[in-house]
Design a protein around this nucleic acid. Sequence first.
DNA 1: CGTACTTTTGAATCGCATCAAATCTGGTGG
DNA 2: CCACCAGATTTGATGCGATTCAAAAGTACG
Lengths: 200, 200
Amino acid sequence: MAPLATTAVFEDIPPAIRGSAEAVNYAARKVLGRLWSAPSYMYFIRSGEVRLARSGRAGETLILQRVRQGWVAEASLFATKYHCDLVTSEPTACVRVRLQAISQALEVNSDFAREWACTLSSELRRLRNACERMSLRTGEQRVVHAIECEGSRGRIDLPGTLKDWASELGLTHEALYRTIARMEASGRLRREGPSLVLVR
Amino acid sequence: MAPLATTAVFEDIPPAIRGSAEAVNYAARKVLGRLWSAPSYMYFIRSGEVRLARSGRAGETLILQRVRQGWVAEASLFATKYHCDLVTSEPTACVRVRLQAISQALEVNSDFAREWACTLSSELRRLRNACERMSLRTGEQRVVHAIECEGSRGRIDLPGTLKDWASELGLTHEALYRTIARMEASGRLRREGPSLVLVR
DNA sequence: CGTACTTTTGAATCGCATCAAATCTGGTGG
DNA sequence: CCACCAGATTTGATGCGATTCAAAAGTACG
C-alpha cells in the first residue's frame, strides 16, 4: 500500500528541517527500507512503531532498535546502503525527510547539528548497554539488566509482546517465558499488566 | 604517573580543534576515565590502544570499543558520566581536548560537525554489527561474522591476543581457542601470523 | 466460531562456562 | 646466557542453561 501523504507540519520536528518534512502514514508490516538498499529518506516517528532488524537465514530475527518516538536508523545518513531492514510493526505515523535536507540542515544550522549529535550519542550509549546485555549468559541476568538500564526504578513497560522482547534480548521466546516464570515463582519479579517489576 | 604533556600539534586532528588539543602519552594500563566519573576530556588516539570496557562483578571484562587511531568514547560528549572504563592496553600516544572545546567547535564549524556526526554514525553501525554478532549462538558463527564484518576479503588482523579477542566476541578464551582449533583442523580457517583467514 | 498468534510446558540435545592443569612465550634480572 | 616469572595458549572433564522440537492452552479479532 502506498503511504498516504499529507502536508501537515509538526512541532516535534526540529525547526531546521520542518520545511522539507513530509508526513506519511504506514500500515503494520510495511517495509520502509530493506537491507543493502540505498536509503533516500530519514524517518521521524510520531506514533506507532518502527523496527530496525536483521534476520538470519533460518528466519530468526534480531531487533536492533525499536522506535516509537523520534528518529530511526540515524546512522544511515552517511551510509550508501541500509545495514538493516526498516519495518513498521503496527500502523505508524511518521515524517520523512530527504537525506539531503538533513545533510544540509547539519551544515547550516548548528542547533540542529548539536541535536543530531546528541541523538546519535544517546543511541550509541543505548547500544553499548545492549551489547553488554548480550554478553550476559543467563536469561535472568539479561532481564535484570534490561529492566535496570531501560526501565525506571526497577520497572519496565513492555512495548509489545514478550515474544518481541525475547528477540531484543537475544533469547528464544521459550527461554524468556521460562525465565520470567522462574523469577516470578521465586518472588524476584512481579508482572503488573504490561509492566515487569523487579522485587526488592 | 602523570601524563607527559607536550605542545605538538598534529595533522590528523581536525583543524577546528587543533588549537585546544594537547598531546599526552600514557603507559600501558593507565585509566583515562572511570565508569560513573564525569568526563572532562575527549581523547584522540594517535598510536597505541585505548579500550572502552565494562567489567562484571566476577572480574570478567567485556571490551566495547578498541581504538588504535581516532576518537574514543565519542558518546561521552553529551553525557555527564562515563558509561564505561577507559583504559590503555599498551603505551599510547593521544591528544586530549576539553569537552567544551569540542562542543564549541561543533557549534561554530560545520565541517567539524559533519565529521563528528559521521564518526558517531559509523561507530553506531559497528556496534549494531557487534550486537548482531553477540546474538549468534556458536563461537564459530561469531568468528565468521567478525571476520566478514571487520576484516577485509575473509582476512582479519588480530590487534592483540586471542584472549583479548575472546572478550570482544563475548566468549571465554577457552571457547575461542577450541573454536579456532576446530575450524583450523577442518580446514575452514587458516592462521597466518597475526591474521586469521577464512578458507573457501 | 474460527483463525492467527502468543503464551506455556515438556523432553532431548547442544555448546559454552567453569574448574583444573600443563605447556608455551616473551621479557626480566641475576 | 640462563633461571625465572607473568601471561597467553592449549587440552581435558563436568555441569548448566539455552536451543530445539513438539504440543497444548490461552487470547484477540474478524
